[in-house]
Design a protein around this nucleic acid. Structure first.
Length: 425
RNA sequence: CGGAGCGUGGCGCAGCUUGGUAGCGCACCUGCUUUGGGAGCAGGGGGUCGAAGGUUCAAAUCCUUUCGCUCCGACCA
């Protein structure tokens, strides 16, 4: 993309109503704008980040054998009455009526809808397991929306559901999904932990949360330094000090919940009569699991974990651009020509690059490039062109180097690989 | 829902205590000069101070009500 033909309204100062760093940076970098409390507009760059996250989630869901579908976000009250949640879910469920005075709600989650779909189609154990997911906007009328994208009322979520013939099958689905989650957060490039968690109002037998580690996280977790054990403090009060697995001393840290997997068993399938005939021809209730990822929250969590005083530090897989190309001398035709060559090279090499072709002073361009947080920065101006080099900066480490223009094609891939290596992706 | 704070050009803020019809920085427009870490000079446009009501000769400023936003708490798959 070219800066001059893009809608990237960067801000020099943070709006006063932004408190947390991810919110400030998302606003300043021109990625989101607040419409009202808990509701945000995703601007082109913010949407790019969201889409990159969603693409990674989607590819790992597909790899795990789940199929994408899309359910309505408006849901009839009748379904929620079947499970009793119409009465129990509370005010977070935004309810309203249509012109015929029938009750509906805006979907905060979709167990009822997916169960009603599947129970109408699946008759035999031969059709199980059924594993489905969607990526969609959810609405929860939070008591106190806050921290920008971290806790909005409307947010983008990936929700997956599995239906198996028995609990053993459901546990297998659960394990597959948990494994897919590990891959997703690794691919995105975040430091995270899977922790044992409380089931909350979704219910079910057991669950794990996926926590992005950040000092500003709302959740407290305990982690074992020696084994894989980690838990939300909500479920670890008794074992506050020692690991139940290896008896090592647990350490406490903060996390942001970006994913949650639940073993639901028959919590929804039983009251909603999601049944099938087993091999013996007798009626059985399906065993379910449900699995959520907060796609839009990941964008915020990534920044809570990765930023510095100059702006965003996006992991390469989800950065709005992998590379920003700074033309420091837009009125120098030779610089323009050369930088177009570099830009064309990057695009051909599959690098998502932003060419800053604005007729701005160098300082403004450096500031914006740092703010946007693309992991790689390439700078060309009259001075560097005369010396026959392009300057390269690793945004995260601040490390600067130069590549000979004559050997750019040969040297760039190695430098780019080094930058990605810094992120472990 | 309980507690606290805030609402003044696009953004950040001052003015309010001690009423006299609005100011600064950034951004924006024009011109000239500049051009390697948010340029300089000159000129210019834009707000009636969240809204409603009240007190007063006169309200951004005082009083009442109301709406909105933020933070702390409670709540949160």
């Amino acid at each position: 993309m070219r800066f001059t033909s893009s809608y990237i309204p960067t801000l020099r100062e943070s709006p006063a109503d932004a408190e947390v760093v991810s919110h400030k940076l998302l606003l300043r970098a021109g990625m989101v704008r607040q419409l009202t409390s808990g509701l945000y507009c995703y601007l082109p760059l913010g949407l790019k980040v969201i889409n990159k996250i969603a693409d990674i989630v989607r590819s790992e869901m597909d790899n795990a054998g789940f199929q994408e579908l899309l359910l309505p976000m408006v849901q009839p009250a009748d379904l929620w009455k079947e499970t009793g949640r119409w009465e129990h879910y509370g005010k977070e469920l935004l309810r309203f009526q249509d012109r015929n005075a029938r009750d509906y709600c805006l979907g905060p989650t979709h167990e009822e809808v997916i169960t009603s779909l599947v129970r109408g189609e699946v008759r035999s154990y031969r059709h199980l397991p059924v594993r489905l997911y969607q990526i969609q906007t959810k609405f929860r009328d939070e008591t106190r929306p806050r921290f920008g994208l971290m806790r909005g009322r409307e947010f983008i979520m990936k929700d997956a559901y599995s239906f198996d013939a028995d609990v053993a099958g459901a546990e297998k689905s659960y394990a597959i999904m948990k494994d897919a989650y590990m891959k997703i957060f690794s691919r995105i490039g975040l430091k995270f932990r899977a922790v044992e968690a409380d089931n909350g109002s979704i219910g079910g037998k057991f669950s794990h949360e996926f926590m992005v580690l950040a000092d500003t996280g709302e959740d407290s977790i305990v982690v074992c330094p020696q084994c894989d054990y980690a838990a939300n403090v909500e479920v670890a009060q008794n074992a506050a000090d020692v690991c139940p697995c290896c008896r090592a001393r647990l350490t406490r840290t903060k996390g942001i919940e970006v994913g949650h997997v639940f073993m639901l068993d028959k919590k929804y399938s039983e009251p909603m009569r999601a049944v099938f005939l087993d091999e013996a021809g007798s009626k059985q209730v399906m065993a379910m699991g449900c699995y959520g990822i907060g796609v839009s929250r990941i964008a915020a969590a990534a920044l809570e974990q990765n930023h510095d005083e100059n702006g965003c530090l996006f992991p390469p897989p989800i950065a709005p651009f992998e590379c920003v190309l700074l033309n420091l001398d837009c009125r120098n035709m030779r610089v323009n020509e050369k930088i177009e060559e570099l830009y064309a090279y990057l695009l051909k090499a599959g690098i998502d690059a932003l060419l800053d072709d604005r007729d701005e002073r160098p300082g403004a361009k450096f500031k914006d490039a740092d703010l946007l947080g693309a992991p790689m920065q390439l700078t060309l101006g009259g001075k560097s062109l005369e010396r026959g080099v392009v300057e390269c900066k690793n945004r995260r480490t601040g490390e600067k180097s130069e590549i000979d223009l004559s050997a750019f094609g040969a040297a760039f891939p190695a430098w780019a690989a080094g930058v990605r290596e810094n992120w472990g992706v």
